[in-house]
């Protein structure tokens, strides 16, 4: 019966986060979701070609490839498609994180161990965000693989003046990387939204419903006006790869979307939402009796 080691708050959160990640790794849902996202991202570029061809044939014409489509636009399009799955998976996991612990009774099991409620919440946020980040990065890598296999990832050239290089492959790869990193910030906000929903209900299903409703509400809010759009994090979840796609398709001025100042603004807005939502979730959880 030797005394267990004493730990500081950060060590406790990291220990709990590792615990959460090991739980996530043991769940079929997370593994299936990961495989699905990778599959969607790999197949989307090829699927896009198939759909375009089918549509052309249905119109009774020979398939006419979009002259501005290329591997990079396919990559960005594939990540945008996979993003829908990623958003749902992260939202479902975050929304059920606390509610599931309450319904199983395991929140009590955690809180009779040396942790504060806020540390439990922080660890869950970190674990879900890390999983979401892994999904984003895996989707980007898989989409790059799919795009390379289907169209190839070359320099972006003017289709009418093939000798005129608009963006080198290196520059496009750099933009893809920046877009991937910029997408990680909205995942924080999404995690916060899910966790807030999770602290508001004892039932994982209800909490997930709340989280999804919240996302729809925010998406609606973003669509209300051009002025509101930049201030809602959901905008910054889709913007980075839409910008990459615009760049790949040589739409003028698209690169401005990934300029450091714009990108930092998006990150700040998303992190602000994340902090506010997680703070609210913390307030709700602390006030609740377990």
């Amino acid at each position: 019966m030797s005394a267990p080691p004493a730990r500081g708050p950060l060590a406790r959160v990291l220990l709990l986060a590792r615990f959460e990640l090991r739980k996530l790794a043991a769940r079929r849902l997370t593994l299936v979701a990961f495989a699905l996202v990778v599959l969607v991202a790999v197949l989307a570029p090829r699927a896009g070609q198939v759909v375009d061809t089918a549509a052309a044939l249905a119109r009774g014409r020979a398939s006419q490839a979009d002259p501005f489509a290329n591997g990079w636009s396919a990559l960005a399009g594939a990540v945008s498609t996979a993003r829908l799955f990623i958003v749902l998976v992260v939202l479902v996991l975050a929304s059920s994180a606390v509610a599931e612990e309450v319904s199983l009774g395991t929140l009590k099991a955690l809180l009779v161990r040396p942790f504060r409620k806020l540390e439990v919440l922080a660890a869950k946020a970190l674990a879900v965000w890390l999983y979401g980040a892994a999904l984003v990065l895996a989707a980007v890598v898989a989409a790059a693989l799919g795009a390379e296999l289907s169209r190839g990832l070359y320099d972006v050239t003017d289709p009418f003046y093939p000798d005129l290089t608009k963006h080198t492959a290196g520059l496009m790869a750099n933009y893809v990387l920046r877009a991937a990193l910029a997408t990680l910030a909205p995942v924080v906000a999404l995690t916060g939204l899910g966790l807030l929903a999770s602290t508001l209900s004892d039932h994982p299903g209800h909490a997930t419903g709340l989280g999804v409703a919240g996302l729809f509400l925010l998406s609606g809010l973003a669509g209300l006006s051009d002025a509101a759009q930049p201030w809602v994090f959901v905008t910054h979840a889709r913007l980075p790869f839409e910008t990459v796609e615009d760049m790949a398709q040589q739409i003028s001025g698209a690169a401005a979307g990934l300029a450091p100042a714009r990108a930092l603004f998006g990150v700040a807005v998303s992190l602000g939402w994340g902090a506010a939502l997680l703070g609210l979730a913390g307030l709700v959880l602390v006030r609740r009796d377990v």
Binding site: K23, A26, R28, G105, T106, K108
Partner: peptide
């Protein structure tokens, strides 16, 4: 209040 564990 009863045993509470992760069913999976």
């Amino acid at each position: 209040e009863g045993p509470a564990f992760y069913p999976y």
